[in-house]
């Protein structure tokens, strides 16, 4: 712990984060941004019913489960306990 503290302190003293720390931050941001971008592009290219592969079929089965299960619908706020609303 002390060694890491001294290493990071000396890195700050030299005027920057240090090469390793910079790499870590860059990688974290880059991977997070990649995931976000892929999801965003998927959202903008989404077409209803366009996919009929196995992921889409499995996803629709999970969708049915969540939609038809009243307790789950109430938990996620799709319906009130009286039964109004839809996902």
């Amino acid at each position: 712990m002390k060694e890491r503290f001294d290493r990071e302190l000396s890195a700050l003293g030299s005027g920057g984060l240090g090469k390793e720390e910079g790499r870590r931050v860059f990688l974290l941001c880059a991977v997070g941004l990649l995931s976000f971008t892929l999801t965003l592009v998927s959202f903008f290219t989404w077409r209803e019913g366009a996919s009929e592969g196995e992921i889409a079929q499995t996803a629709s089965r999970i969708e049915e489960f969540f939609s038809e299960n009243e307790a789950v619908s109430v938990f996620f706020g799709w319906e009130t306990a009286d039964g109004d609303g839809a996902p």
Binding site: L28, V31, G32, S35, F36, T39, S42, A50, S51, A56
Partner: peptide, 27 residues
Amino acid sequence: YLFLSESPAMLLLFFGALVFHEWGHLC
């Protein structure tokens, strides 16, 4: 198999989930 059977949007969603999963490990 996924490339042959899924739509581009679904594939992007799949890879987005994959990268997000690895991001969790990286964090």
